[in-house]
Lab assay of single mutants.
Amino acid sequence: SLTLTVRGEEAVRRWYKWAQAHNLEVEVETHGDEYVLHIK
């Protein structure tokens, strides 16, 4: 499992696509303009 902090929706989309390509689940938490992604 992997936890990432990114800024901006574009980065979130990029990681989301990456995770889907690897059959992984993604949980997204929003903290202001930062997003915490939990990839499992």
Rank of each mutant, 00 (worst) to 15 (best):
S1R: 11
S1P: 10
S1D: 13
L2N: 04
L2H: 07
L2K: 05
T3D: 05
T3A: 05
T3H: 11
L4G: 02
L4T: 04
L4Y: 03
L4A: 04
L4Q: 03
L4E: 02
T5R: 15
T5F: 07
T5G: 03
T5S: 07
T5N: 07
V6T: 02
V6M: 03
V6G: 02
V6S: 02
V6E: 02
R7K: 13
R7D: 05
R7E: 05
G8L: 04
G8Y: 04
G8F: 05
E9D: 08
E9V: 14
E9T: 10
E10I: 08
E10H: 09
E10N: 08
E10G: 08
A11I: 07
A11C: 13
A11N: 11
A11K: 05
A11S: 08
A11P: 03
A11F: 05
V12T: 03
V12Q: 03
V12R: 05
V12S: 04
R13G: 06
R13P: 01
R13N: 11
R13A: 12
W15G: 01
W15T: 02
W15L: 08
Y16M: 15
Y16P: 00
Y16V: 15
Y16W: 11
Y16E: 12
K17W: 10
K17H: 09
K17A: 15
K17T: 10
K17E: 14
W18R: 01
W18A: 01
W18V: 02
W18I: 03
W18K: 01
W18H: 02
W18Q: 01
A19D: 00
A19Y: 02
A19G: 03
A19L: 08
Q20N: 08
Q20S: 10
Q20Y: 10
Q20E: 12
Q20L: 14
Q20T: 12
A21D: 13
A21F: 12
A21I: 11
A21Q: 12
H22K: 06
H22R: 10
H22T: 02
N23I: 03
N23P: 01
N23M: 08
L24C: 11
L24K: 05
L24T: 02
E25A: 10
E25L: 13
E25Q: 13
E25H: 13
V26M: 15
V26P: 02
V26K: 00
V26Q: 01
V26A: 03
E27W: 14
E27D: 09
E27V: 14
E27M: 12
V28L: 10
V28W: 07
V28G: 02
V28D: 01
V28I: 14
V28H: 04
E29P: 01
E29Q: 09
E29H: 09
E29G: 04
E29R: 08
T30E: 14
T30P: 12
T30M: 14
T30A: 14
H31L: 12
H31F: 12
H31N: 13
H31T: 08
H31M: 11
H31G: 04
H31K: 14
H31S: 09
H31P: 02
H31I: 12
G32D: 07
G32W: 03
G32N: 06
G32V: 04
G32Y: 04
G32C: 04
G32P: 04
D33T: 07
D33Q: 09
D33M: 06
D33I: 06
D33F: 06
D33E: 11
E34W: 15
E34P: 02
E34D: 09
Y35L: 05
Y35K: 03
Y35T: 05
Y35S: 03
Y35Q: 03
Y35D: 01
V36E: 03
V36F: 06
V36K: 06
L37G: 00
L37A: 01
L37Q: 00
L37V: 08
L37M: 06
H38F: 09
H38R: 12
H38N: 06
H38G: 02
I39F: 14
I39H: 01
I39G: 00
I39Q: 00
I39M: 06
I39L: 07
K40W: 14
K40N: 08
K40A: 07
K40D: 04
K40P: 04
K40I: 10
K40L: 08
K40M: 10
K40Y: 15
